[in-house]
Design a protein around this nucleic acid. Structure first.
Lengths: 355, 355
DNA sequence: GCCACCCGTGTAATCGATTTCGTAGCCCCC
DNA sequence: GGGGGCTACGAAATCGATTACACGGGTGGC
């Protein structure tokens, strides 16, 4: 090594696959092929030459194990080939599947994905968005934690293509890709009515959260069609969208003079909390309380009892979001996307499954 | 807008937060502050000046909403500030939690994380590693799908710092951070012996997979200490480490002349498949067959019955891996890390939980 | 009072690619 | 045979930052 260093007059680096970590660059390739860097670039990007220089260049690339430096390329072309995804909570299986779908689609379209996990904390989300903007990603998908994000406004102002995912954000002018729960909730109301449940309840995100508000409104309206009321005392908001919040709300429900006989948890983690509270009090699902979950997660078939769920078309949402984002990037017109969710009836409302 | 454009003699771009997407660069800041770009850079990187130029520069930065271009910076400094993580399967909750932990730690240390999901497909994994190398990430964490990865060898040769996570890869000279199951499996063998289970079985990855081989060997040795044999007919290998593989293996077990009375699934997804097969045959856990799962996932407390599991110190693994990688990046000496897993006894082996 | 330093700053090289522009050579056509 | 156009390629500018080097001016030491 030190010998090579002394032998090398001008530079210390020795290009090629010699394991010293010095990667060959376009200049090395050009020298070896006896052409200019411009020619190398053109061959590699399939621009003009078809001549026999092409062969020499490709041979040199092969021999040196050359790989173009994406950083330099990004600087020059102002395209990084990377998309950003801000996900509200990576440990939530719904979002995991969403991220997985987004990743698949982005990859198949030649983009790589930088994932930022907001962990349901708006501050962390802003922090991440900032980082991604600084990295000059080509576009951004955001499943926003919380609502009033100043940083999202900045993204729009910066001109970085933005698409919202699963959760819309009031005041942000960007297309949103999400599921429409209307049909599923209508079906659910009928299902509960048919099973004789008359005192439904709902566990939601706090008022002001678009997703929560909408699910509440749709559920209430659907119930009304069957003459069933959803009074405010049976609407439980939980600030953290997590396990503990769900448990607390369920506990409050059970302490009511007239406890609910059916509960819709609008997120799978909150549902887990609710189940724990029921279990802790020795109550049984569905005998004492029926339980329905928003988001269908693979292991819901393995719980005791298997949970009736509202399934969002997760993978389709991910795919649609990537396509919308690419359209934005390519300055094609984009519209918001609404895909229907559907009810998956299992045993947690009392009806036997009909396999 | 068009007026401004005409007024601007040399360039069309108008720096600043005017929503036209033209981000200010260091030259704009320099001009506005009446200094050279070198000075701006020095102020921003806290190198030399403390003078009153500093104030002017910071003011200009503020007014223009300037953010340094990380791509350009990376090109010049040869540091991207990004780490790569290749995860075997993003939809597997164990790996999700691992990824979450890695992400947290990387972020808190000022790195961002580019996640690649191999989906248990070696080809896709290699593809991703290639992409990440091209992006010149500062270091790479790999929880490898499959074993004989040519690309991993190339990573080592390229000099990119590499740390293996959860799964070691024979022939790859890189530190590995993973859990040690010895103590937990010893405890498990005792647990099963005490409960009178005499015909254990194990569902593993195919022979040749380091993780699978090791878990098998440790389990077998631990059982031997109690005079219990683990014959080959009760060792079931599944090529896909998924749900369906687990189900098939369990099915084969149950067709044996002497079916097992206790099954250890060495991955949580395989365990789900095994449970499904038991359920489909109308068998009960733990009455007919005891079930133990490798990896403790939050919802195991909610299955029917709650599952006894071997819990790996997931978050600690993630943290340790990031630290090991940073050490590699900074050329500090690094050693492999082994953290102990532990047994979490629930009801799926027959013993009532002792809360 | 002179010289050596040091501090703050500007100039310009640099990272590794892409891309514009210019040019040499060739073919074709009138 | 000369002009026009096309092809293949090289020289050099460019992207936006960092940083080596140079330089002017003030300060302290002798």
């Amino acid at each position: 090594m030190s010998i090579m260093r002394t032998l090398s007059p001008n530079r210390e680096r020795v290009p090629g696959q010699d394991g010293n970590g010095a990667m060959a660059n376009i200049k090395d390739v050009a020298e070896r092929a006896g052409v200019s860097v411009a020619t190398v670039s053109r061959v590699l990007n399939g621009h003009s030459p078809v001549a026999e220089t092409r062969e020499r260049v490709l041979a040199a690339v092969q021999e040196l194990g050359y790989r173009p430096n994406n950083v330099a390329r990004a600087l020059r072309t102002a395209r990084t080939g990377a998309l950003g995804l801000i996900i509200s909570d990576l440990t939530n299986p719904f979002f995991t599947e969403l991220a997985d779908a987004v990743e698949d689609e982005a990859r198949s379209l030649g983009y790589s994905l930088v994932i930022g996990n907001a962990g349901e904390r708006p501050a962390q989300q802003d922090d991440y968005i900032r980082t991604l903007l600084d990295r000059r990603i080509d576009g951004l998908l955001v499943s926003s934690a919380g609502t009033g994000s100043a940083m999202l406004r900045e993204v729009v102002a910066s001109g970085t293509p933005l698409v919202l995912l699963d959760r819309s954000v009031p005041g942000i002018d960007a297309p949103c890709v999400r599921a429409d729960g209307r049909a599923a909730l209508t079906e659910l109301a009928a299902h509960l009515a048919a099973l004789g449940r008359r005192r439904p309840a709902i566990i939601v995100a706090p008022a002001g959260t678009p997703t929560g508000d909408e699910r509440l409104a749709l559920f209430r309206a659907a119930l009304a069609d069957h003459g069933i009321a959803l009074p405010d005392e049976r609407v439980g908001a939980t600030p953290d969208l997590q396990h503990t919040g769900g448990r607390q709300v369920m506990s409050a429900f059970l302490d009511l003079a007239e406890p609910p006989d059916a509960v819709l948890a609008t997120d799978n983690l909150m549902a887990l909390g609710a189940m724990d509270e029921l279990r802790a009090r020795g109550l049984r699902v569905p005998d004492d309380v029926a339980l329905v979950v928003y988001d269908d997660v693979p292991w819901f078939t393995h719980t005791d009892p298997p949970l009736t769920a509202i399934a969002q078309p997760t993978r389709e949402l991910g795919r649609a979001a990537v396509h919308a984002l690419l359209a934005r990037i390519e300055r094609r017109p984009v519209e918001s996307v609404l895909l229907p969710a559907r009810l998956v009836a299992r045993r947690s409302c009392g009806e036997p499954p009909t396999p």
